[in-house]
Design a protein around this nucleic acid. Structure first.
Length: 343
DNA sequence: AAGAGACTCAACCGCCAGACT
DNA sequence: TAGTCTGGCGGTTGAGTCTCT
């Protein structure tokens, strides 16, 4: 019996594109009442009259009518049928189209760059990626990725799945890359010592035309006391890095409640720079006093940033010593030595 | 101008995990 | 404990639009 009723209901459900009328019903309902239980919304949305204005007691529904109990008005029709959609469909329509906080229009270059950065770390976790782009939906980002960004990456010679240079697939590397294809940085347990563990010289010398960028890198200190350790890539020689890390104490407002300090980076994978884009791979790392945090982009272009949390907020003047494959940072005032294996 | 192919994007489908009974 | 329901997610589809020839 119940099964029959259920299948009858299913037969009534509409599919396909939403009409303006349906949109209006759903929008009006959720604006007034919130979405609550999605599965109940199709019935409730669009209902003009549900309760007799004078009736405070119980009622029951019977088809498209409401039967009031112990009321002079025994029966009242639902004047407008609810949506002939399933709750799931309503939810999707609201999230992807009707939500008032949605940002319309094409993606900006900054947004595209951020999506690529995030994809390198998170893979196809579209909802997590969308969480970093206010006003954008996972569906929208997924579509952008599949229709446009994948292609752009390939044109840049980067494998959109692994975020490694396509040419690398044909090279016989002598180093040992312990990362998974999508990057181990997503496992949120990454520390300075678990970033790229291959042999950097092998990496850099794969292409004779690319000079070892380590010999050119300079490391300016940020005014906030962070130590920026390095940024480089074997296909991406960066002669110098400006002050790439800022501290933002309002990390909670950015949705990273467990991170003591939100780090912002100015550098893209391709070596150009942009501003105010949060480093997504820090989102689940808790930094404590004295912690070191090492991060990587998860792409073929590696970047290591070391933060001595103890130094946060202090003005440091640190001589930097580069010893082949390592970069060592020293805080002379504290006698603190932070030597970071970057690769 | 017309047809074919490429592209975009809204929406559906199936699966999964957690809550509830 | 098992079954059911629900919401959330990623993959996929297909209608509409655009671009190219």
């Amino acid at each position: 019996m119940g099964r029959n009723a259920s299948s009858q209901q299913k037969q009534k459900l509409r599919k396909g594109l939403w009409s303006p009328d349906e949109d209006e019903k759903l929008l009006n309902y959720i604006t007034k009442h919130g979405h609550g239980c999605w599965s109940a919304i199709p019935k409730l949305a669009g209902t003009l009259t549900r309760l007799c204005a004078f009736h405070k007691g119980p009622y029951k529904e019977c088809g498209t009518k409401i039967i009031y109990m112990n009321c002079k008005v025994k029966e009242i029709s639902i004047l407008c049928l609810g949506l002939q959609r399933c709750g799931k469909s309503c939810r999707l329509r609201w999230i992807n189209y009707l939500r008032p906080d949605l940002k319309r229009g094409t993606f900006t270059q900054e947004e595209e760059d951020l999506i690529i950065e995030l994809h390198a770390v998170l893979g196809n976790k579209w909802s997590q990626i969308a969480a970093h782009l206010p006003g954008r939906t996972d569906n929208e980002i997924k579509n952008l990725w599949n229709s446009s960004l994948k292609k752009k990456l390939r044109q840049r010679g980067i494998d959109p799945t692994t975020h490694k240079p396509l040419s690398e697939e044909n090279m016989s590397l002598t180093n040992t890359d312990e990362r998974s294809p999508t990057g181990t940085y997503a496992d949120n347990k990454c520390t300075a010592t678990c970033s790229y563990k291959g042999t950097p010289v092998d990496m850099f010398l794969l292409d004779d035309n690319v000079p070892n960028p380590l010999s050119n890198i300079s490391f300016p200190l940020s005014s906030h006391g962070f130590e920026v350790s390095s940024g480089f890539g074997y296909d991406n020689p960066i002669p110098s890095i400006p002050s790439v890390v800022h501290q933002d104490s309002s990390s909670e407002s950015l949705g990273f409640p467990n991170v003591a300090n939100t780090i912002w980076c100015d550098m893209r994978h391709d070596g150009s720079f942009f501003d105010s884009t949060p480093l997504p791979w820090l989102e689940e790392i808790t930094t404590n006093e004295g912690d070191q945090v090492g991060i990587g982009t998860g792409t073929g272009i590696d970047m290591g940033i070391g933060i001595e949390a103890e130094c946060i907020g202090q003005s440091l003047s640190l001589p930097i010593e580069m010893q082949n494959h390592r970069i060592s940072l020293f805080d002379e005032s504290k006698g603190l030595s932070m030597t970071q294996q970057l690769f």
